[in-house]
Write a protein that binds this DNA or RNA. Structure first.
Lengths: 271, 271
DNA sequence: ACATAGCTTGCGGATTACGCAAGAAGACAG
DNA sequence: CTGTCTTCTTGCGTAATCCGCAAGCTATGT
């Protein structure tokens, strides 16, 4: 653009493709995201800092969100936290049904490709909820527990779902009660869980070394949405005899591949 | 302002009180609400009809919401349904903790006023999750199960949480499997549950006539947010000997009063 | 009491979003 | 396969809306 004949410096080329976003709405949603991301109430000042928008605009946007119940103030204070509307909306929807609809194909694919039972789970509160499963065609196979709640700290799915939490979050989640031991391998300390989580983040998958049930090994990977948040987990389970650790690398790659595909599907179910 | 020199007819008086809302954001949130309210995918046309906004504006707003993952299109079709972001946000937050923080006082008040155990519950998937409880000072009292998942169809809390569902929704929730019978009084047919729900809506509270456990009667009422959606339930439990049906009216009124107070607190925790 | 930090509100300008209307893209019937 | 009809998508000009500045205000701490 050598000449630059434009009087006012126009934003960008803004080609015909790509409908432009509505600025105020977009900003409002960013505020929601930011508040949700932080686990402590957020002050107006820090919102302006993070978003780089003027104080007054942030105030008015946040105020609008508050009026509709998407944000709220804690009993005493001006800081913002998520309001009940967010929860209301999410409750109306049966996410597990939506997820299993989207992921069903992939789950079958995974189970079929390695011929072991595959599971799909989400986190519900302090439990892993097993949304769906697809069995293997072995005489001996891990039976699926669709609809079951299992502990988070001693299953591969549970650990995958927790992968992004830091020590503080883990401690607040599990409280002061010691983690219940189900087998001799069960991880019972939060400290160890912290290490496990950081390992998941670098390696991308996690195994369950007979931590939930003797004789059963599992391998799972987190499913992340476009924004990178963990929203579910997918993995496989098999008797130890048929699932020695030297298969981990291969299975891990497979599981992670499927996890990524599902994440992409969830992110943008168009074009 | 005796002269009223304004050329363009200004909207309303717009007094100093009440910060005005940002229109586009407000509209976007209305769209979210509308989509969530409907349990079938919503077309652009019906959105414009419901909201009374121009087609193009709705399109661009919805598009913005879609980009941020708050809306999505089903695999094939242009209709809108809720996107994963809504779920993501709600997951980040520990609603049970927030709720119990807000309601703790009231729960204590309720338990104290009638000297029986009071419970606070929310729905998590297809279970009632008991968020908090407050015990009574009796030798024999119903012990509290904070942190427990209980069935929806045979507890007063569960039924209160389901009160607004219609037959279709109830059937899709419970599926084809018959409702498990826990006592001789347990409601085992969806048809009966439908009647029970309509009764709750008119009467405002519901009892559990030893449907979950022999010898225990409960009474619960739904907690509704500002918009009227059921978001939680509160109620009391006692041995039948101490809680005959002629106490229902008094206890019912008490429980409903507290439920309303909590709902108001959640809706607007300011002024 | 004063000072400081953070929240709230007026105000004017111009960017932004709105609505109209025309243009695609399908859906459906003949 | 073609024409008609519905529904979604995009240009464009207008002006209303929203943005940022800067000044009030409220609360907190010294």
């Amino acid at each position: 653009m050598p000449n630059a004949p434009l009087a006012t410096t126009r934003r960008v080329k803004r080609t015909l493709l790509e409908t432009p976003s509505i600025q105020s709405l977009d900003r409002g949603l960013m505020i929601l995201d930011t508040v949700a991301k932080s686990r402590v109430p957020v002050s107006l000042a820090s919102l302006t800092a993070v978003l780089g928008i003027d104080r007054s605009s942030v105030f008015r946007l946040a105020n609008t969100l508050k009026r509709r119940g998407f944000l709220a103030n804690p009993s005493s204070g001006k800081e913002y936290l998520l309001g009940t509307s967010v929860w209301r909306l999410s409750q109306k929807y049966d996410w597990s049904r939506m997820l299993s609809a989207v992921a069903q194909e992939h789950l079958k694919l995974l189970a079929g490709s390695i011929n072991e039972t595959a599971h799909l789970a989400i986190r519900e509160g302090s439990k892993a909820f097993f949304v769906d499963h697809c069995g293997a065609r072995h005489v001996i196979a891990i039976s699926g527990q669709s609809g079951e709640f299992l502990p988070l700290h001693c299953t591969s799915h549970g650990k995958a779902l927790l992968a992004d939490l830091d020590e503080k979050e883990l401690r607040s989640l599990f409280g002061d009660t010691p983690l219940p031991r189900l087998t001799k391998n069960t991880i019972v300390s939060v400290a160890e869980l912290v290490r496990e989580c950081s390992r998941i983040r670098t390696r991308g998958y996690v195994t369950d070394e007979e931590e939930y049930m003797d004789g059963v090994r599992c391998l799972a990977a987190p499913i992340r949405d476009q924004a990178g948040y963990i929203i579910a987990s997918i993995g496989v389970s098999a008797p130890v005899a048929r699932f020695p650790p030297d298969l981990d690398k291969e299975y891990g790659a497979r599981v992670m591949g499927i996890a990524q595909q599902i994440g992409e599907l969830l992110g943008s179910p168009l074009p």
